[in-house]
């Protein structure tokens, strides 16, 4: 369990952390999600002790570590650009934390071999980091961080320097690793898909403040505000309200659209729009629309729905939000 209590940190006039309070449950995989400059990395580095707080406290597993050096916090840290010890072999990299603790050779040897097997680098013991791919280097960095049995594992954009395919593979792998190792893990990312995919809790940060904390489903379906809503997925502005593109229904007939809309309480109403473009993206179809007020938005429908509608460019349709009244309550912007 990690508790951050009233953390503050400024660089000149810029407040990187503005009174942040956050509890991270033991054994969880929590993502700190936010745009760049939101303070997510500063928060992670403060937990590690690599940044000093201007105010507030940090408690790891019941121990107040606010003034404690990073060496003595019992953390494992993984950097975006691997931070590999280039002049050491893979084995020496992973063994580093144990070697400097002067553990017996046999114990180091056994532990390093175990870890290399877990991260899938068995047989790479005698390679140098330069001889590994990016994904392999990052897995080596993970093994190195895990070797010292950290209380918490901190990952700073760990997949940010990798290409899309490797990134997707590695985060699946990280998820499985976490299920095996169960160490409290905090992951910093600016990629909402990554956070939704891998984390069991997400804290959304913006401008040095926490906007909302919760599990991925809650955050996606019941965002606390417009910022969280638009950061966790694409949104369309429909009659002044934010709606997810897949929550927009289209109808050719105005009366039918109005009748359907009446059953959904507090919706933004029926909007008349012109079809500008129909884009087929594999399973989904995106329909670019222009409302009569001039604002553009997109609706996302399945292929079957698109075929049933048979829309063509230049045609007029009636758009409405299909989000239910409970969502409208949670998300006041929808009730305008």
């Amino acid at each position: 369990m990690i508790s951050v209590i009233g953390a503050r940190r400024s660089y000149g006039d810029f407040a990187a952390l503005d009174d942040v309070t956050l509890d991270i449950p033991a054994g969880s995989l929590t993502a700190l999600l936010g745009p760049s400059g939101s303070g997510k990395s500063t928060l992670l580095r403060s937990i590690a002790g690599l940044e000093q707080l201007d105010g507030g406290r940090i408690v790891i597993a019941g121990r107040d570590v606010t003034g404690v050096a990073p060496q003595k916090r019992g953390i494992g840290f993984v950097f975006q650009h691997y931070a590999a010890f280039k002049h050491m072999t893979v084995r020496d990299n992973v063994a580093f934390g144990l070697t400097i603790r002067k553990r017996p050779k046999a114990e180091i040897s056994r532990k390093v071999d175990d870890l290399l097997e877990i991260v899938g680098l068995d047989g790479f013991q005698h390679r140098y980091p330069a001889q590994l791919s990016g994904g392999q280097r990052q897995r080596m960095a993970l093994a190195r961080a895990l070797a010292v049995d950290p209380e918490v594992l901190l990952l700073d954009e760990p997949f940010g320097a990798l290409d899309a395919k490797v990134r997707a593979d590695l985060r699946q792998w990280l998820r499985r690793l976490h299920d095996e190792v169960h160490v409290t893990t905090v992951l910093v990312t600016h990629d909402q898909e990554e956070a939704l995919d891998v984390a069991d809790r997400i804290a959304v940060l913006n401008k040095g403040r926490i906007e909302q904390v919760g599990d991925p489903v809650t955050l996606y379906d019941r965002p606390a505000n417009d910022f969280v809503m638009s950061f966790l997925g694409s949104v369309a502005r429909l009659g002044g309200a934010l709606v997810r593109p897949h929550d927009i229904a289209l109808d050719r007939d105005l009366e039918r659209a109005r009748a359907a809309d009446a059953r959904v309480g507090g919706s933004p109403g029926v909007i008349e729009a012109v079809v500008e473009r129909v884009v087929r993206l594999g399973f989904e179809v995106r329909i670019d629309l222009r409302a009569d007020s001039g604002t553009r938005f997109a609706a996302q429908v399945t292929r079957a729905e698109a075929d049933a509608l048979g829309l063509v460019e230049g045609e007029t349709v009636y758009a409405r939000a299909t989000t239910g009244p409970d969502a409208a309550e949670i998300h006041p912007a929808l009730a305008i």
Partner: peptide, 27 residues
């Protein structure tokens, strides 16, 4: 020199002198 490498050594428990001797100096 990549400063993160020194931070990595620190996070693994290495003192400043150990970090210099085993990580920075070889570079």
């Amino acid at each position: 020199v990549d400063r993160e490498v020194e931070e990595a050594a620190a996070s693994l428990g290495a003192s400043n002198w150990t970090t210099f001797r085993r990580v920075v100096l070889p570079t």
